[in-house]
Write a protein that binds this DNA or RNA. Structure first.
Lengths: 334, 334
DNA sequence: GCTATCCGAGAAAGCGCTTTCTCGATTCCA
DNA sequence: TGGAATCGAGAAAGCGCTTTCTCGGATAGC
């Protein structure tokens, strides 16, 4: 029986096969050229000892870990989960694994978190909507190879996959406008979040060029609870339509509103943003701006992979959210 | 300026501070006792060179990576995402990171996947409902330290955090029975999945001891699409209530049923299982058996942490799902 | 049959850090 | 003042693998 003492090392295998560790290494990695009998002996020895190369030692010698870090502001958010799921599956095809980290606990040391987790991997996919451009730029150097998600990379040479939040929210506002809504509310996301800022910009521009529309802002947040908490304010605002920061907020809001006796969409129309998997199952189904999260994960890996092999990554893309009209929006009440 | 050539190593710092690498190591790890001036010099040198210890090299020398693997059958399932989110946050408090892996692509080599990913980490949290007891037992040895999630560990000494699926589904069936339902359908999960088997057992036992109840089984799966696909069969079954394998299936089913003009719960009552975050927002809100996923993550880490430090992990627990009655169930139609 | 080539496989030097020994220099006590 | 006890810090041996060099032996060529 195999002795349970300690995992076999390459030296053990080498000894048993009466060859050098170098040869074992070569055999294990398919780089062996020479007497087939020798290779055979090595394989037998490896099998007999139940030898498994130490990934750690390999990584150190090779200078690469075959792992990438994935940092997001909130792992509990379905939008990021969708990206993670897709990234993880895609990277797995190339033998890479994903190390996750959630910066929700303390946004302020997101840079440290990112740096720490980056050092354990070969590269990092970062989603840091709350980080300032300056912070990000300062950090980018030590993070490379780096792929940015959900934001652009001003002054940074890293690939970025962004979402045209302004365009997305504008489509939603436009949609509401066409339904006759004139008084709208925008339920703001986390302040100092770039993705929120972009939505605000889009909305401001829309309001500026559209006669008779008034969009007021109410602070909320990024989670369902934040939406729910804003329900009372929304009702008293007398607006006929609400653009929520994202689907989570919209879902919470709808729930809160319904609890107050407000009918959606009869009394108030509500829109989300993201099109998380459940947006179509809410009651009523949520009108939203659809973001291709799975595609984001796939593309992120494509860029990452190129970067890792020192090839030129494909150009940056800014995804255009697709207007997904469902039941939570309807004509403005008379 | 710092030269951009190559990351500084401990040797570089040692050279600059005119001390040995050993001393640098000690200073960096707070194990230094001796001339404060020396420590100061080291710190200055480290700072000047922007020195960051190589996590990889440390891991190799220390024999530990401060990472744990998390393997699930489907990373896209909100139930697992909830566990991951919680596990990741909890482990982070002890300086551990989580490496994820999704075995959805090929269930058959889940053992290989688990082993591979385990070797990159100090331990593994495994959720493998489709693996046979025998496979699992064979695998357990090389996976240690191992914490099992969502299933018990027959003949294995690893901690396990399981869910009493049988009890949970029984509560749901009981609830339906009390509402007057007599003809029910159970929408089965993945065949050969242990968690499905337990539900079936619970249901069989319930049916056996309950007069006049008839529970037929219809194969479905574990995702929303599977539930949706089963809608037609469910309707033609003439059952007045459906127990879905999980919330995802229930949500898909409800959607499919509504599309066929079936009213929930008026015509047919539907229950889920898990109580994923969105269960309460579906239309109608889903009656389900609530599983404490966040708690699962926390407890998994507690066990893991104990195992890693060679302490005795707390005893296994089998969580009792809580009956969460919402709107998708109602009295059986006359 | 003898030298020029080639080829198979080993020796050894890393990869970057930790840690046990070890040793020279102080300090302390008699 | 001498010897023991103490203390600060370095030397060096790993951790387990990869890879460049190197070299002895076999093959080829004349």
């Amino acid at each position: 029986m195999a002795r349970r003492s300690r995992a076999a090392t390459i030296a053990d295998v080498a000894a048993r096969a009466a060859v050098s560790p170098a040869t074992v290494s070569r055999v294990m990695n398919g780089r062996f050229v020479g007497e087939p009998a020798v290779a055979e002996r090595v394989r037998d020895a490896a099998q007999a000892l139940d030898y498994r190369p130490s990934h750690l030692a390999r990584s150190l010698a090779l200078g690469q870990t075959s792992a990438v870090a994935f940092v997001v502001p909130d792992l509990a958010n379905p939008a990021f989960q969708a990206v993670l799921s897709s990234l993880s599956k895609t990277a797995a095809h190339d033998g890479y694994r994903v190390l996750v980290a959630d910066s929700a606990e303390s946004p302020s040391d997101e840079p440290l978190l990112a740096a720490e987790v980056r050092r354990r991997c070969d590269a990092i996919v970062l989603c840091a909507p709350r980080m300032s451009d300056a912070e990000l730029a300062a950090l980018a150097g030590e993070l490379q190879p780096l792929v940015l998600i959900n934001r652009e990379a001003p002054g940074i040479s890293s690939p970025s996959l962004s979402i045209d939040y302004a365009a997305g929210i504008t489509k939603l506002a436009q949609h509401l406008h066409e339904l006759g809504h004139r008084r709208m509310v925008y339920l703001e996301g986390p302040e100092s979040s770039a993705s929120n800022a972009h939505r605000v910009e889009g909305l401001d521009a829309f309001a500026a060029r559209t006669k008779g529309v008034r969009i007021t802002r109410i602070p909320a947040g990024a989670g369902a609870e934040d939406g729910r908490a804003a329900a009372a304010k929304v009702r008293s605002s007398k607006a006929t339509a609400v653009l929520a920061y994202n689907d989570l907020v919209a879902i919470g809001l709808i729930d809160g509103l319904q609890e107050l006796g407000v009918r959606i969409p009869d009394d108030i129309s509500v829109t989300g943003f993201d099109d998380i998997p459940f947006a179509r199952y809410t009651s009523p189904a949520l009108t939203t701006a659809s973001v291709p999260h799975a595609e984001l994960g796939v593309q992120a890996w494509r860029r990452m992979n190129a970067l890792i092999r020192h090839e030129d990554p494909e150009h940056d893309v800014q995804f255009q959210p697709r207007l997904e009209i469902r039941r939570s929006t309807a004509a403005a009440p008379a």
